[in-house]
Amino acid sequence: MAQQNITIKVNGTDQAAEIEQRLLLVHFIRENLALTGTHIGCDTTHCGACTLILDGKAVKSCTVFAVQADGKEVLTIEGMTTNGELHPLQEGFMEEHGLQCGFCTPGMIMSSYALLQENKNPTEAEIRWGISGNLCRCTGYVNIVKAVQYAAQKA
């Protein structure tokens, strides 16, 4: 088993570990760091439940090896709250009923976060395009779009 030492800055804290080189980033986040807010859905690069921010870009962490994130920065859903204050996106998903079962929600929030970093005032079409890599099987997206609009207005 090929092993490697890596250090990834996750939600602002350096996390060092010796890992198998075939370990996927999502497994490192969930199993090594016990940050289980990042979900595994389809596990085949379709659903976006595993979305996190890698060096400023939203990516599907089931389709990146942890060794590829060595020396880089990761932001997960757990890093969205500061001093107990919800991020406007988290608040928006609550206020606008942007979730039912909640399984897709962390991925939706991370994709929306990346979208709002690039485009502070997206149109509805731009929001829908921005989250087109994330699948929700409950809500039909209408309230998810409203949640992102809520956050955009608040920011």
């Binding site: 979305t51 870009k57 599907k60 990146v64 994709s111 890599g133």
Partner: peptide, 9 residues
């Protein structure tokens, strides 16, 4: 091509 998340990689 694929979706925004995939296009980032």
């Amino acid at each position: 091509i694929a979706d925004p998340l995939v296009r980032n990689r």
